[in-house]
Nucleic acid binder design. Structure first.
Lengths: 249, 249
DNA sequence: AAAAATTACTAACACAGGTTGGTGAGCGCT
DNA sequence: AGCGCTCACCAACCTGTGTTAGTAATTTTT
């Protein structure tokens, strides 16, 4: 089964074959979006829940004067809030950052799944709680950390998240971000993003080229950014660090 | 019925007397916390859901080097994430800012309520979605806005939220925040908070003294901070601005 | 009622990060 | 081949905000 949502949920619990099938069937009709295209725009009526199957996407808000802030990234397997359809209109947009494949799960299907499978429901709630925790950590990031720390922290987070769905290659992952987009994510100017990237490269912490991020020294990158992965709640069985390439921390 | 949670949910839907009673009964045993005291601390095992009944509280995270960031405020009627008990440990703390009264609703009661009353369940989901939307707006706030805009935006938000539970007196509300706490909320230094407060006072936009915030010119305060209340989703019946002292935009 | 903390507030200086105005490489058009 | 566009990158200068080091007024503790 290579549904990235199932790979993600496996970080929290084990699901039965029946549950996995039920999820898979809901991801049937998917649409492709090209880089820069909006999946949903601010002000749209809220429809079904979106699931990113392939690619890289973001959630962003615009200020009236044109400033833009990215408030979340989606890696494959990420759902965009399970219950949005309760609200009337989107107060922000979802945009494809790289070319992406997105499935839409209808409200009916969400209700059917959550009414039928308690273990699956718990796993889905876990994923929304993680999403909220990430948002909080981003507030800390822009509020307290300086440019270098912020960027280092973001890269740590993204590596962990790609790894959680098996989309890393060792310490590398595909990350089709421009420096302007990074700036709009970190609350910096594009020029300063450039300076900061160079500082990270000079310190042999990362490389970022051709849409690929490689972390050269994860321990050091975590240390300079005060990165503590607890907020990702990837601790499968009672409070142990996740499996795969398990780390200190 | 003067349960602040019910007053808040009334912004989204009308609940039956039975549903209101069911909620009320779950708020029975409450505890008092004094200013500065932690309601829950980072690392604690997650227990029941907390409901702020009176006072003012915050959610905050600490960095290892002592920096602190407030990532949310709670006004009476606010629940602290409906489903936290799915996670094992708190990745942040909840602290009383002013003296506060907090009820604890057990996981069992949450499950019972949501399994029994669909309309109530929808209203509770609405409140968690609003909480998430506020977190996102805070990312925008610290990421894109300068000191004056940030502070103005926060004060607008708080007035709207106090008003939604009937805890305003016209353009005033009780806000027992020190300048240091404001600094830790807005990602500024305490000194700059002081400067910015004075700028807001000089421009006749607000006063803040003795723990009371008064907004002297809401329209202007909204304008300087690009405040758009849509993200609070207080639109009761189809897309109309809320009642009470209804405003433009 | 004295002592100790906490809080609001001020001034002078320092610096992180923003702004402006560039260059050149790469890439998809026609 | 040439045009337009995007992107990474660079240098010089400017400014918003942080830092440090205070004073004075309140509040809390003893």
């Amino acid at each position: 089964m290579n549904n990235p949502l199932l790979r993600k949920l496996a970080n929290f619990t084990e699901l039965s074959a029946e549950e996995k099938n039920a999820v898979d069937e809901c991801c049937g009709d998917a649409r492709y979006f090209s880089a820069g295209e909006d999946v949903i725009s601010q002000g749209d009526r809220t429809g079904g829940v979106k699931l990113l199957l392939e690619g890289f996407a973001c959630r962003y808000k615009m200020l009236e004067d044109g400033r833009r802030q990215v408030v979340a990234y989606f890696v494959p397997g990420d759902l965009c809030d399970l219950r949005v359809f309760i609200l009337k209109r989107m107060d922000h947009s979802i945009g494809a950052v790289g070319a992406s494949k997105v499935a839409t799960i209808s409200p009916d299907n969400v209700l059917r799944l959550t009414n039928t499978y308690p273990a699956l429901t718990r796993a889905l709630w876990w994923s929304t709680l993680v999403e909220e925790a990430i948002a909080r950590e981003w507030i800390v990031n822009v509020g307290q950390r300086n440019a270098l720390e912020r960027m280092a922290h973001l890269f740590c987070e993204l590596l962990y998240r790609f790894r959680a769905v098996g989309l890393n290659e060792g310490m590398s992952c595909t990350l089709p971000l421009t420096q302007v987009e990074l700036a709009e994510t970190l609350g910096l100017s594009a020029v300063h993003v450039n300076r900061t990237l160079q500082a990270l490269r000079k310190r042999k912490l990362i490389t970022l080229e051709n849409g690929t991020l490689t972390i050269e020294n994860l321990e050091e990158l975590k240390a300079v950014s005060f990165f503590n992965p607890d907020y990702l709640h990837l601790d499968y069985s009672n409070e142990k660090p996740q499996s795969a390439e398990r780390e200190g921390n």
